[in-house]
């Protein structure tokens, strides 16, 4: 499946993937971030409960320096 992540297309062998697994694959485990799927925030409580599917648009954000 193909998923849009932060504006780039990423391919996965699996047909669907849990946010928890996605975070591990992206080396973000243990980091502070928030995730949106198709414009809806995925709360941390549901990382292991829902699936990201083919064609989903994912945004993963963090805090950076700014004024």
């Amino acid at each position: 499946m193909k998923v849009h992540i932060n504006g780039s297309i990423k391919e996965f062998k699996a047909k669907k993937i849990k946010p928890e697994e996605l975070i591990i694959q992206l080396n973000l485990k243990g980091k502070r971030f928030a995730i949106e799927r198709n414009g809806e925030i995925i709360s941390k409580n549901s990382f292991d409960e829902i699936y990201i599917n083919d064609g989903d648009k994912i945004e993963i954000i963090g805090a950076v320096g700014g004024g």
Binding site: I5, I60, I61, G62
Partner: peptide, 14 residues
């Protein structure tokens, strides 16, 4: 302290 919210860098090392 103010912080900005931006896409995370996906190429980062752990």
């Amino acid at each position: 302290v103010t912080v900005a919210i931006r896409r995370v860098n996906l190429g980062q090392t752990p």
